[in-house]
Computed example of a mutant assay.
Amino acid sequence: MANTGLVSVESRFGVGETIDRLVETVTHAGLRVFARIDHAAGAHEIGASLRPTELLVFGHPKGGTPLMQDQQLAGIDLPIKALAWEDEQGKVWLSYNDAHWLAEWHGLGDASRDAVAAIAAGMKRVVAAAAGVNQS
C-alpha cells in the first residue's frame, strides 16, 4: 500500500469521546484547540448521512513556526489536525498526518528537523492517550 502520510490508531472509545479525550490531553500539554468540527452534524444539516466523523484542529506557535520559517507554505497543513471517524464495521479510528511525511512533502530541511521530531513524538503520545492505547 502506498504511503499516504496518514497514521491511524484504533480507539477504544466512540468518536465524540475520543475527541473529548484528545481535547483534554492536548490542552493539558499546553496546546491550543482552535476548532472542533463535527462533519456528521454538517452532513445532517443538508439531509445527508455520514458515520460519526469529527476533526480537531490544535497546536502551538512553538511547534509550527519553525516549519513555516523553513518553508512558509507548510502553513497550509498547520495547525495540526486529527480526525476521529467510525468505519463501516463500527470501529473508531483517530487519524493524523505524519509529521515526517509532511516535512518531506513540504521540503523541510535541517532548520525544522527538531520541531518535526517533537511534533511526531507529541502526536504519538496525545493520540495514544486519546485512543486509550499503549504506545509501542
Rank of each mutant, 00 (worst) to 15 (best):
M1I: 09
A2Y: 10
N3R: 13
T4N: 10
G5R: 01
L6C: 03
L6N: 11
V7L: 11
V7D: 05
V9Q: 06
V9L: 01
E10H: 11
S11T: 10
R12M: 14
R12H: 15
F13L: 04
F13N: 12
E17S: 12
E17W: 03
R21Y: 02
R21G: 04
L22H: 05
V23I: 14
E24V: 13
E24Q: 13
T25N: 11
V26A: 10
T27C: 07
G30M: 04
L31S: 09
V33S: 00
V33E: 03
V33T: 04
A35Y: 10
R36L: 10
R36G: 01
R36D: 09
R36A: 08
R36I: 10
I37W: 12
H39T: 07
A41D: 15
A41Y: 07
G42R: 07
G42V: 09
G42A: 10
E45C: 11
E45M: 14
G47M: 14
G47C: 06
A48K: 14
A48E: 15
L50G: 13
L50Y: 00
R51M: 05
T53V: 08
E54M: 10
L55C: 05
L56I: 15
L56E: 11
V57W: 03
F58S: 09
F58P: 01
G59T: 01
G59Y: 05
P61F: 15
P61D: 11
G64M: 06
T65L: 11
T65S: 14
P66E: 04
L67V: 02
M68D: 03
D70F: 06
Q72M: 13
Q72W: 04
A74W: 00
G75Q: 01
I76A: 09
I76C: 00
D77H: 02
D77E: 13
P79F: 12
I80S: 12
I80N: 07
K81P: 05
K81Q: 15
K81L: 14
K81Y: 06
A82Y: 02
L83G: 10
L83R: 04
W85K: 00
W85D: 06
E86M: 14
E86I: 08
E86L: 04
Q89S: 14
Q89H: 14
G90T: 07
V92K: 02
V92N: 04
W93E: 07
W93S: 09
S95E: 09
Y96K: 01
Y96L: 02
N97C: 06
D98N: 15
D98T: 08
A99I: 09
A99P: 14
A103C: 08
E104F: 01
H106K: 09
G107K: 07
L108D: 00
L108F: 01
G109A: 08
G109M: 00
D110P: 14
S112Y: 12
S112M: 09
R113N: 06
D114I: 01
A115R: 00
A115S: 15
V116P: 00
A117N: 13
A118V: 12
I119N: 03
A120Q: 04
A121I: 08
G122P: 10
M123C: 12
V126G: 13
V126Q: 11
V127A: 15
V127M: 10
V127K: 03
A129W: 03
A131H: 08
A131E: 08
G132D: 06
V133L: 07
